[in-house]
């Protein structure tokens, strides 16, 4: 383990895409089936969009948020989640990897464990399903919510999406740590994650204080979409931190990932395979 040959970043990137290509090939074996799953996921995610849309055409503006602003706020969740299931699907499916013994195979290979976990999976169907929703929302709203898409804002936007992806990956990774002690927390994780995401669909200012603090400090979804949206939409609440708000997202993501990764490595030390 400790006398590993170090790989350079370009080598790792190349290897990542080799993996991705292989996964794409398996996925494309069942073209009809897989595309139908994407369509199904798209339809499922559209349910909440349609609800929001119907409410907004009836009421026009809620607490200073109009339809396009709300949909813009929502689009962050889909785009970053889409990126998450593309890059970090391995973290999502980590429990299954431990149970099937796939993890033990990784441990024998001369490559970083977390790298292999991440590179070994990519969920194309979910990426396309969520991605399509996100991109449609972004295209519909990007021009009409008064954002000037100059270099500064575009960079900030990319930083927010990447940061949001890492935040969600870290939240998923917390539960994967427990599988080292063969405690399966997948159901609990889905429950906590997707319910938090449900709250994050609407502006945080709609909710009572407890929920706000939860989404800022414990499950920092506020940094995935709410705070960045305040900046991009020029809401009056932004004035305190101003232009730095979007860069909080990658910072929170990095800190969170570092903390969870430390815990993960601690778990790995205690790991003693499922088989015998």
């Amino acid at each position: 383990m400790d006398k590993q040959k170090m790989f350079t970043i370009p080598e790792l990137t190349k290897l990542f895409f080799v993996h991705t290509k292989l996964i794409a090939k398996t996925t494309l074996e069942y073209k009809f089936h897989r595309s139908l799953i994407s369509v199904a996921i798209f339809c499922r995610e559209m349910i909440s969009i349609v609800t929001m849309y119907l409410i907004m055409i009836r009421f026009v503006s809620i607490k200073g948020w109009d339809m396009n602003e709300m949909l813009f706020l929502y689009s962050f969740l889909f785009i970053s989640y889409s990126l998450f299931v593309f890059v970090f699907a391995g973290i999502r499916d980590f429990d299954a990897m431990v149970q099937s013994g796939e993890l033990d195979r990784f441990l024998l290979r001369p490559l970083g464990l977390i790298y292999q976990v991440i590179a070994s999976r990519a969920d194309f169907s979910a990426t396309l399903g969520h991605g399509a929703v996100g991109v449609i929302l972004l295209i519909k709203t990007a021009g009409s919510v008064g954002i000037e898409w100059n270099l500064r804002n575009t960079l900030a936007y990319i930083a927010v999406i990447l940061g949001g992806t890492v935040i969600q990956a870290s939240l998923f990774m917390v539960s994967s740590c427990f599988s080292f002690w063969t405690v399966n927390t997948t159901n609990l994780r889905n429950l906590v994650f997707f319910n938090a995401r449900r709250f994050a669909a609407y502006p945080l200012s709609f909710y009572p204080g407890v929920i706000r603090y939860l989404l800022i400090f414990l499950l920092p979804f506020a940094f995935v979409n709410y705070f960045p949206s305040l900046y991009f939409l020029n809401k009056p609440e932004v004035s305190i931190l101003g232009g730095w708000i979007p860069y909080l997202t990658p910072v929170v993501g990095a800190v969170l990932f570092f903390l969870v990764y430390t815990f993960w490595k601690f778990g790995l030390k205690h790991y003693s395979s499922v088989g015998n």
């Binding site: 339809c43 349910i47 609800t51 119907l54 009836r58």
Partner: peptide, 28 residues
């Protein structure tokens, strides 16, 4: 072989067209 997609699409149709999501009197 695998009816996950059918079930999910059916669910979406049910949710949107049954009035389960918001009061029907607010609908266009």
């Amino acid at each position: 072989f695998e009816i996950f997609s059918f079930i999910t699409i059916k669910d979406a149709a049910v949710m949107i067209l049954s009035g389960a999501l918001l009061p029907i009197w607010f609908m266009p």
